[in-house]
Simulated scan of single mutants.
Amino acid sequence: MSEAQGRRQASRQVLLASLWLTLLVLAVKVWIGWATQSLSLVAESLHTLIDSFSILLSVISVSSFQFSGRDGWGHGKLEVTMTLLLVAFLGFACLSILAVSASQLEAIASHSTDLLPIKINPLLLQVLGVVMAVSFCVAAFELYEARVLESAALRFSANHLFQDAWLMILVLAGLVGVSWGYTWIDPVLAIVMVVTAVISCWRVLNWQIPSLMRQIAIAPEALAQTIHQVEGITHCYAINSRGIVGRQVFVEMHLILHPECMGIARSIAEQVERAIRERYGPAKVVIYIDSVAGQGKSGK
């Protein structure tokens, strides 16, 4: 297994571990939110749901390298359908929470008795504190592994998990305030959580959209012309590209080098990747180096 394949495998394992822990955190938040009838905690759970879905898409994208039956890498119709269902669910959930929060604030302002009784106790607050600590630990672990493995997917996921953990601190402080009698804090925080959830969802989709694209991003002939500018390459073939030029492009290719240049194959691969990025912007490039006889192959 090449170095690049090893890094992808390690990134996949880290993402899978993060996914299961994030789903566990999500389940605990939803359970406590339902038990306490806290709108802010339910709304904050939407952030964790978005983070879980983003990690799932990253797992699928990284895993697609592992299966030869899949066309290139990235996402297909199933992932696009899942994304549309998530957006529809988030839209319904956000509108529902906003409506209930508005009615709660109106009831508080008019001193009405039609208020949702929020049931807060020290034990639940302690559980939420543990959940918050777990989120911080998962985010810190992902960020560390992102630097070691040079994984953009892990770095993006870690940043969102950190954001989720900080928002959880705000919600936890709000629940403490509610237990002291400031009932208006919960619906106000719920509205804030809904707004930030919409922003978070847009950021996730904006980052994942290039990998959701299935059509060819750059003509193979144009890429071949750029590749041949690097000395030592005798032939390039099986050139595939997807994504959005200027945003993020995914490129995969096979190269045949001159026999005298096999010793500097890694340097040539780096020059090819640099040339593609200089011309087409951000790009993730996977290069397979074949020997002249077609017997050897390695990936960058």
Rank of each mutant, 00 (worst) to 15 (best):
V194F: 00
F53I: 06
I289V: 15
P122Q: 01
W34Q: 12
I264T: 11
R155D: 05
L85E: 01
I218C: 13
A153N: 07
I268T: 05
A238I: 10
G294H: 12
W166F: 13
N159F: 15
A133M: 10
S110Q: 10
W202M: 00
L172E: 07
S135F: 11
S18H: 08
L212F: 15
S58V: 01
I55W: 12
Q215R: 13
D290G: 13
S64H: 04
S211L: 12
L41G: 08
V130G: 05
L257P: 03
Q126I: 13
A165C: 00
E142N: 06
C137T: 14
L86A: 01
L95M: 01
I55E: 10
I256G: 05
A153H: 06
H254I: 03
E231H: 13
I32K: 12
L149S: 10
C236R: 00
A146H: 05
Q9R: 15
A4G: 09
A27R: 03
A109Y: 10
S58N: 07
L115K: 03
Q37S: 08
I209F: 13
A107M: 01
I50P: 10
I169W: 11
W184C: 02
Y280Q: 00
L39N: 03
P282F: 09
L95W: 08
Y144I: 12
K284D: 14
L223E: 12
A133Y: 11
P187Y: 12
G243M: 01
L125S: 01
L26Y: 07
L15M: 05
I199S: 12
N240P: 06
L98N: 03
V131A: 06
A269L: 04
V286G: 08
K77M: 09
L49E: 00
G6F: 11
V285F: 08
C201H: 09
S103N: 11
Q13H: 12
E145W: 08
V30Q: 05
M213F: 14
D51L: 02
G181E: 01
I276Y: 13
V42L: 15
A222P: 13
L78R: 01
P220F: 08
S110T: 13
A88T: 14
S151Q: 01
A293W: 12
F250R: 06
A133P: 08
I209C: 04
L84F: 08
L205A: 02
S54I: 00
I199G: 12
A222G: 14
L257Y: 06
V251S: 07
H258G: 02
E260H: 09
N121P: 03
L212C: 10
S157D: 10
W207V: 06
S45P: 11
L128R: 09
C137V: 15
D51E: 09
L85S: 04
Q225D: 14
V100Y: 10
F65Y: 13
K284A: 13
S68K: 13
I185G: 05
E273I: 11
